[in-house]
Write a protein that binds this DNA or RNA. Structure first.
Lengths: 137, 137
DNA sequence: CGGTATCCAGAACGATACTG
DNA sequence: CAGTATCGTTCTGGATACCG
């Protein structure tokens, strides 16, 4: 007797462990940025650094490496001098684009999440939670 | 051969700061899980704990609070005894569902990212990067 | 130019104990 | 039942220095 208007396939018993991992993939502070940059095509290390000035070599390398290990970016290093390395998205990362797209749309719509719910709160029971003053985290 | 088929609005010059933030919203270790559970409707604290056994009260509370501050969940506390608190998604969170859906689909398709690309890697330049054996992270 | 190694600060996480 | 408080641990991110 399901009454909670269960939607698609999400179960109330077990969430998707894969989903968790997928979320984890993009959790890095710069992963999103990097991936986003990579959407525009191949990029060299220096290019990425210029594109994302706030990131350090260490972080860029780390995150890039992480993404590589996750099979989201392909690294092509040319053993020549001066050294040149190019990064590009893998098919898997490309399949990830719709996610980015949706997320981007959402971020655009709710760019500024507001503390107050835009809809009428249904205090069916008639008493409001005393959401007193909570020292914003 | 179109260069990556530029889609929506992603620019190669400036990534979306909002996107970054949006990604950050789901970065918590349990945020995804919690939100996923909440899709099924209202949930009590204990229910969430039962649904996600690996999470501690502390974490559940923290993440839940975080989500609340971000305007993604609404907390309804009934000042009665025994205490009862129900959590539910806000419209904003509901709008986030497509993202979850896409992410879920992606996670399902690439559930197990394999080291070897299922497609032929285009080493156009002809030389493979000596991605010898790297001691996994 | 591209990358690694070491050190370090801070946040995130987790376990336990205690309160209303 | 729901939540807070404190502690310690792990992880992440950043600065500097050095190597190919």
């Amino acid at each position: 007797m399901k009454k909670q208007t269960n939607g698609p396939d999400h179960a109330d018993c077990t969430a998707a462990p894969q989903l968790q991992r997928a979320l984890r993939v993009l959790s890095g502070k710069w992963k999103g940025e990097i991936l986003w940059q990579l959407v525009g095509g191949k990029r060299r290390f220096g290019e990425l650094r210029r594109a994302i000035p706030d990131v350090t070599q260490h972080m860029l390398t780390t995150q890039l490496r992480d993404l590589e290990n996750e099979g989201l970016v392909k690294r092509t290093v040319f053993p020549e001098v001066p050294p040149r390395v190019e990064y590009e998205m893998t098919p898997a990362a490309r399949d990830l684009r719709p996610v980015f797209d949706e997320l981007s749309r959402w971020a655009n719509a709710h760019g500024r999440l507001e503390p107050a719910s835009p809809v009428a709160d249904d205090d069916a029971d008639g008493r409001r939670a005393g959401s007193s003053d909570r020292p914003a985290r």
